[in-house]
């Protein structure tokens, strides 16, 4: 065991999973290190959500091991939360479910995720983007060491997605926590991640996002899907809304097919 494995917040090894005879995951190993953002990417049906559920203990393991740092404080943002219309619940009631928090604490955290106005609103009435922020706020209230986000930007429009990933990155820096998130689009999360794990039943490749985007396995899986997409990379700059960023180095190589940048 090297040092890194010893200090991992969450690690899994030899994880395999089958549903009805179909192999969903095969021999997965990964570890989430402190203060890092790790992103799982992969096509639909690659087993991303299954893996997250196994790591969190939401589904029983069939084989392999999951190790959590003892007493790990965890904030989880599921892929989709639908609160039944029959249940009257304001955002503030929802936030209060996870523990005992003061009104000030809850308002502060809503400010942090840039959704201060929804505090008193019924949770069924807020937009998809607001709901994702509220879920994030709920997770943050736990003062997490590890945030687990399953497709955090699902149901959010393209501009909202960029804003959301930017927010996640800011929050990571502010709270000094690790992030494990799932995405189906590497380029959306590129700027906001330290490590990418490309998953397609097995781990195809792991590494820095710009390296993964060049990896032959990655290109084999995603190459065709990437054609015709408006893809760009920005190197950890915070000006996420400036679409004409200069694309340089390795990152440029992955985007050399026609992409409609202004410059």
């Amino acid at each position: 065991m090297n040092n890194a494995a010893a200090m991992a917040l969450l690690s899994g090894s030899g994880i395999s999973y089958q549903i009805g005879g179909r192999q969903i995951l095969s021999e997965i190993a990964l570890e989430v290190l402190p203060n890092k953002i790790m992103t799982l990417i992969g096509p639909n049906g690659a087993g991303k959500t299954t893996l997250i559920r196994l790591l969190l203990g939401l589904s029983p393991l069939q084989s392999g091991k999951v190790r959590r740092k003892p007493g790990l404080r965890l904030g989880y943002v599921p892929q989709r939360v639908m609160v039944a219309d029959t249940l009257p619940l304001r955002v503030r009631d929802f936030l209060g479910l996870g523990g005992h928090y003061s009104v000030t604490e809850m308002q502060q955290v809503l400010d942090e995720v840039e959704a201060p106005a929804v505090f008193e609103a019924p949770i069924q009435s807020i937009s998809g983007g607001e709901l994702q922020r509220v879920l994030l706020a709920r997770a943050l209230l736990k003062k997490p060491e590890l945030l687990v986000l399953d497709e955090p930007a699902q149901g959010v429009d393209a501009i909202g997605q960029q804003a959301l990933y930017h927010l996640i990155r800011t929050l990571r820096e502010k709270h000094a926590c690790s992030v494990l998130m799932v995405s189906h689009d590497l380029h959306l999360v590129m700027a906001a991640t330290d490590t990418v794990v490309c998953l397609n039943t097995h781990v195809c490749c792991t590494g820095h996002p710009e390296d993964v985007s060049e990896h032959p396995e990655y290109l084999r899986i995603f190459g065709s899907a990437l054609d015709g997409l408006a893809v760009y990379s920005h190197r950890h700059d915070h000006a996420h809304d400036i679409r004409g960023d200069v694309v340089e180095g390795a990152a440029a190589d992955c985007c050399h097919h026609e992409h409609p940048h202004p410059q």
Binding site: L58, P78, V83, A84, L87, L89, F94
Partner: peptide
């Protein structure tokens, strides 16, 4: 009550709590 309300809102979130 607190747990019952939690699982009525969202079972998985409740479980991770």
């Amino acid at each position: 009550w607190p747990g019952l309300l939690s699982i009525s809102v969202h079972e998985e979130l409740a479980r991770t709590d």
